[in-house]
Design a binder for these strands. Structure first.
Length: 585
RNA sequence: GCCCUCGUAGCUUAAUGGAUAGAGCAACUGCUUGCGGAGCAGUAGGUUGUGCGUUCGAGUCGCACCGAGGGUACCA
């Protein structure tokens, strides 16, 4: 935002340093940590250290302090539109004119509106593959982290200036599907899914999984698997019908979560190309065909001359049936055939790190020059208290719909107490926004590499550092603007003696553009989650110390604009997390 | 054995190599409303797992160790 000023300041510093016999110094700008007022800091440590390295005998901290003081004497603050300049502990601190800075920030936000913080078009196309559920099975809290993380990463990448293609990859074939069909034919023939399709699908699957433990049942399932492999038309039809139910169930969940996909891949659609690729790999001598005693595998360490690093990748079972690797290889190729991708990101949990490393390496060995554009975005699991892994087999799962129902019911109570006069419909929709916001924030406010321990009370605690607090700040801002009635003042000048809470709020708002870039660069929604909370806290501090509606006309005018700007930035940051910013709650 | 990730306040967690390690829960004190609970203000809480190293400067980078979790050829 202050590029012109920075250029002028940089030139001035260079001139001074040249007099000191220092050339080609890198001038960097930082934030000044504490700021009752604010400005830019220039650390002189790197420059002093540079002198030391070039052989000059200097004590770095002392020299940095001396340079800062020398520079301070050189600066005429007014000529640069600065309020004052200080030399502190080796830093040159340049303070902006408070009123001017504040006005510029707020004007910029209100002019750019929802585009404030958006990065310039990078001309980069990024595919993000996420969610990847298995059809005919449940959707639990572990799956939720993937969808929420992937969805937020997509929004952030897009807003940062990338073109994003959202991809999903569904496990629509395999033993789990056959088990499901077996149980359906045997115990549920003719039944239709109810309102909640995923829940219903999962009940049949869970039952099938239990019954499968019995040897005679297992034999029946295997027999059905053989019919499936022979593409028995009756079974294929059943598969198509039931898969569709699953898809519709997932669609319900994605709608609820506000997610959509541009391209959906199915395991079934890459199975054949996978088999062909395996044959090709054997012909090329890269893969070893050990059938029937052993599988088809690639000894990556042998191929690369590494030891215990890439291990062995099995690409086809000894009985000729396919594995994940059989299908992930052709899928990667297909993605690059269909799209001109600059990056291809896989949002998959951390346990598959080695596996993906092997897949990427294999594609490199196959000679695909885009292999270095593949990236595994690993995230840790969601566990239950006591470090219990969520596994449907053990029955230790928290199902998605149960969780949403509980969260919504708790949110409803809050809405009831705050706004009893609203219509039931309005209450329901607000409760849902609050409930989903709370769940999403719980998932996104932890670093990707950290295990989330799912605790009902913590996830549903709407106080403190949680989405409802942020949403509430947005509502309060909206309420002030609504009560102010007529249109927002088109312009307003800011006074020099702004309250500290006003200054702090404005500074937080200036951080959005840079934080968006950082979040996109590191694929870390956490960065935005933190900023959203800080903004809400900043706004509440402002709200508690500054009157808006009852203030003098001049003050009222600029504060109304400040409130509108804060509302905008909070809404944008929530949007990047996939969280609704309601106007009433 | 080897590889990856994590270790920060009682708990959950933040911190582009830069200034006094920042929050939220829980705790404690006070105020308001009121006792089937909430809001606000404040207080307290830290040898950043341990030890070396790189650096003017390390929670952050490197190495080693300790601890937890995960992975390591036909599971996903």
């Amino acid at each position: 935002m202050f590029d012109q000023e920075k250029a002028l300041i940089t030139a001035k510093i260079r001139t001074y340093l040249a007099q000191e016999g220092i050339r080609d110094a890198q001038i960097e700008f930082r934030q000044i940590p504490f700021s009752g007022e604010w400005g830019l800091a220039v650390p002189l440590f790197p420059i002093a250290a540079g002198e030391a390295r070039s052989g000059k005998k200097v004590n770095v901290p002392q020299r940095a302090a001396a340079l800062a003081e020398g520079l301070q004497a050189e600066f005429d603050p007014e000529a640069l539109g600065l309020s004052h300049v200080e030399a502190v502990k080796g830093y040159l601190n340049l303070y902006f004119s408070t009123a001017e800075y504040a006005r510029r920030v707020v004007d910029t936000i209100l002019t750019e509106d929802g585009d404030y913080g958006r990065g310039a078009d990078k001309h980069q196309t990024v595919m993000v593959e996420y969610s990847q559920p298995n059809t005919h099975k449940s959707f639990h809290v572990g799956h939720l982290r993937n969808v929420i993380l992937g969805g937020s990463v997509c929004r952030i990448l897009e807003f940062a200036g990338n073109e994003v293609i959202r991809a999903n990859y569904l496990g629509d074939i395999g033993l789990h599907v056959v088990k499901w069909m077996w149980n359906y034919l045997k115990n549920h023939k003719g039944e239709q899914p109810g309102e909640d399709k995923t829940h219903w699908m999962n009940e049949i699957y869970a039952e099938a999984d239990r019954l499968f433990q019995e040897p005679e049942n297992e034999a029946e399932v295997r027999a059905l698997y053989a019919r499936w492999n022979a593409r028995d038309p009756e079974i294929v039809d059943l598969w198509k019908t039931t898969r569709q139910w699953s898809l519709e169930g997932f669609e319900q969940i994605y709608d609820l979560l506000g997610e959509h996909f541009d391209r959906i891949y199915f395991e079934s659609e890459v199975e054949d190309s996978g088999s062909e690729l395996v044959e090709q790999l054997i012909r090329d001598g890269l893969a070893t065909d050990g059938r029937r005693e052993k599988p088809v595998f690639i000894d990556l360490d042998a191929a690369l001359g590494t030891e215990d690093e890439y291990r062995v990748l099995v690409i086809l079972r000894s009985d000729g049936s396919s594995l994940y690797a059989t299908k992930d290889l052709p899928l990667a190729i297909q993605k690059f055939e269909e799209y001109d991708l600059d990056r291809s990101i896989y949002v998959i949990d951390v346990r598959q790190s080695l596996y993906l490393k092997q897949i990427f390496k294999t594609l490199e060995l196959l000679g695909y020059d885009w292999a270095d554009k593949l990236y595994h975005l690993a995230y840790e699991l969601v566990n239950l208290p006591g470090n219990v892994t969520m596994a449907s087999r053990e029955g230790t799962v928290v199902l998605f719909d149960d969780l949403v129902a509980e969260a919504t019911s708790r949110a409803k109570q809050i809405v009831e107490s705050k706004n009893p006069e609203l219509s039931q419909e309005a209450k329901d929709s607000i409760a849902l926004a609050v409930a989903l916001g709370a769940l999403k924030y719980t998932m996104l406010s932890r670093d990707n590499t950290k295990v989330v321990t799912f605790d009902w009370d913590a996830a549903l605690d709407f106080n403190g550092q949680a989405a409802p607090y942020i949403q509430y700040a947005h509502v309060r801002a909206g309420s002030i603007l609504r009560k102010a009635g007529s249109d927002l003042p088109e312009e307003a000048s800011f006074p020099a003696d702004l309250e500290k809470t006003e200054v702090d709020l404005i500074e937080l708002m200036t951080r959005l553009p840079a934080e968006v870039q950082r979040a996109a660069e590191d694929l870390r929604p956490l960065v935005i989650a933190n900023l959203a909370f800080d903004l809400a806290k900043g706004f509440n501090d402002f709200y508690n110390t500054c009157q808006v509606l009852n203030a003098e006309p001049d003050i009222r005018a600029y504060r109304l604009r400040l409130v509108a700007a804060a509302k905008q930035v909070i809404a944008t940051s929530l949007n990047l997390l996939g969280i609704d910013a309601p106007n009433i709650m």
